[in-house]
Write a protein that binds this DNA or RNA. Sequence first.
RNA 1: GACCCCUUCGUCUAGCGGUCAGGACACGACCCUUUCACGGUUGAGACACGGGUUCGAUUCCCGUAGGGGUCGCCA
Length: 467
Amino acid sequence: MTVVTRFAPSPTGFLHIGGARTALFNWLYARHTGGKFLLRIEDTDRERSTDEAIAAILDSLNWLELEWEGEPVYQAQRVERHAEVARTMLAQGKAYHCYCSPEELTEMRESARAEGRPMRYDGRWRDRDRSEAPAGIKPVVRLRAPQEGETVIRDKVQGDITIANAQLDDMVLLRSDGTPTYMLAVVVDDHDMGVTHVVRGDDHLTNAARQMQIFQAMDWPVPVFAHLPLIHGPDGAKLSKRHGAVGAEAYREMGFLPEAMRNYLLRLGWAHGDDETISTEQAVAWFDFDGIGRSPARFDMAKLTALNLHYIKIADDARLARLTAPLLGARLGRTLDEGGLALLTAAMPSMKERAKTLVEMAENAEFYFHPRPVAPDEKAAKVLTPEARGAIAELAGELAGVAEWNAPALEAVVRGHAERAGLGLGKVAQPLRAALTGRTVSPPVFDVMAIFGREESLARLTDAAAA
RNA sequence: GACCCCUUCGUCUAGCGGUCAGGACACGACCCUUUCACGGUUGAGACACGGGUUCGAUUCCCGUAGGGGUCGCCA
């Protein structure tokens, strides 16, 4: 049997970070088993669903490189099929019309709560004849759910979950306007799409029991369920807007790499022994449900950042430059041209060990693109004392004489100078840094000079010496 | 309120009856060092509580406490 998983977001906002993890696990499991990963947009709530949200979700999934198979299925386009299934159940006596008013339902819930009973519909229209129907009321269609016994969800993560059928009421399948509810739509779509494994958030666990009743009523095979524990904020409450960024796209904007995001999300609730940095290839090879924990995990920005540092360090220079260029361009107020991109790429080896995010990378690289004369920041200005400027002038003269303009040769010159002057390298390098970059923090000065090239470097030093 | 679930360092977790309870992030110290980082070494840091079962419980069972989820003609 080929495994078929799916991710089924409702397009009412950005891709939630929890949704991103759900999508990742579905994708991984499909890849691990050689199965298929499908995408379904649950847009049956026409009020809240928007095209922008759909675009944002697809965009985030693309960013995370979680590619799905085929075209996304739009649930709203399948309402006729959903209604057809409801009619079938009606014809088979698996469902019935209910003429309760909203007021009746509310009252039912309130009295149930007051008496400490489970809040559920009491099934008053279960066996009543249609002739008793009040005039002018459009009925809903409800499932004739089993009232005795129990429904057990054999969950791959949570284990066997047993729920007494008495706890579950006759859920609405078709609204009074004839449109399907989520419960019906999910089951019909999962069945029609051939979904074999339903992997989703823990918040759907009790829904699984209800959905099983629909599968059983239709005599359809029940898929394997795997309910993932939710992601919580640092305070232990369900992750929400007040915790800061909850949308996947926000992390892209903060300069996180998709592979870092995947690794972090994977480890949040899943483990493979002591392994921490797990490549996507390894994840595909190792992923299975038995590695998933049962308790909710807190989102930890620091750990994500540490992982991002690792992935930046091993990433390809040209790719990093390409990803950093727009961020840098925004800071500079202009778009980087080919030459700029080439400079950024060349600078990458000495930059990528010092940035935790691409945003930080852009900040750190900015000085390379500031035109002469260098405008030193406050700290750099302090370093550029008259004595320092004198030393820079001397040094510039010596550096002009090097045959090969590369980092080791330049370092040799400066070291020699420092030794003769009886100074530590730091005493000499720091003014150089200030003169070249206008900052007191930068990549190693010899690398900086090598990147700038002979002409630009000497010009910057001469500027500083002359001031 | 009813039902279901969860509980190992601050955080993510390993552990699947006998371990000095391991790793990672964060934190402290030291080393490396031209700045900032990286890196290396090292330190502190946990089995929620109470009963059982057992020769022996972090591990199995039952309670308690705490936390979470679900109870819509939302998804």
